[in-house]
Design a protein around this nucleic acid. Structure first.
Lengths: 119, 119
DNA sequence: GCTTGACCTGGAGCGCGCTCCAGGTAGAAA
DNA sequence: TTTCTACCTGGAGCGCGCTCCAGGTCAAGC
């Protein structure tokens, strides 16, 4: 149960210090420990959450939905089904997003090929 | 050289009427024709531009960069090299984005598989 | 002639996700 | 002992990309 300073947690998660504080403020990240002087101490568990948030953000999940997920997790083991369903729905949206991205990427490549034929 | 009403251009491009007006206001789309009464008339050429903008937006290009591209195109044929370079740079960013998306999608799938093992 | 509806304008407002700031504290380094 | 750095708080501000609104115009259908 190593503890990490805010700057270290930021470095490892890829979120800024301000974003870490923001996530805690809105209740996305909760139960972050403190030193007697009031400074945050992040655990490996917190970093695990941050890794998940990184994944969800990178795949375009809105923060409100991540909050919902975190809330379910806090509510206990009886919410695993709902949590899984939430992730599955999100994964489906990501698949669609990947298809669209691929299509438009192909379109873009074609446009570039057009410029290639000009000279 | 068929002409399209704003609502038809919106339907075909997938942009809202407000967005079409906005794109013209900021100079992204220029030279859109008008009826004597001042109503917009979109040509096939305009729709071609909108299709390109759709592609670039869907792949995450900021509007400022699309403006730059449109500006180059308006400047004439001597800018084709620069235009191509702009698209190539963008395509590279899109490739990176696709890789990241795939990685995080895999991560997400793994998380879902974890929930599957629970019951 | 009257209503309806699609369109026009300039400009304000919004939702998201941070990001920055002022003013302050604790602890370590010189 | 002074200074420096990393951190703290509450709250304001920002950049992006639209989106909405009020108030008006025109053309077509009844």
């Amino acid at each position: 149960m190593t503890g990490y300073a805010p700057s270290e947690a930021a470095r490892r998660s890829g979120f800024s210090l301000d974003t870490l504080r923001y996530y805690e403020k809105i209740g996305l990240l909760s139960g972050v420990g403190r030193t007697p002087a009031g400074r945050r101490v992040f655990t490996d568990d917190d970093l695990g959450w941050l890794t998940l948030f990184r994944c969800l953000r990178d795949t375009g999940m809105p923060i409100a939905e991540m909050c919902r997920y975190a809330e379910l997790a806090r509510a206990g083991d009886h919410t695993t089904g709902e949590r899984r369903a939430l992730l599955v729905r999100h994964a489906q949206r990501v698949e669609e997003q990947m298809c669209l991205l691929q299509r438009q990427y192909d379109h873009l490549r074609e446009k570039i090929r057009f410029y290639d034929t000009l000279g």
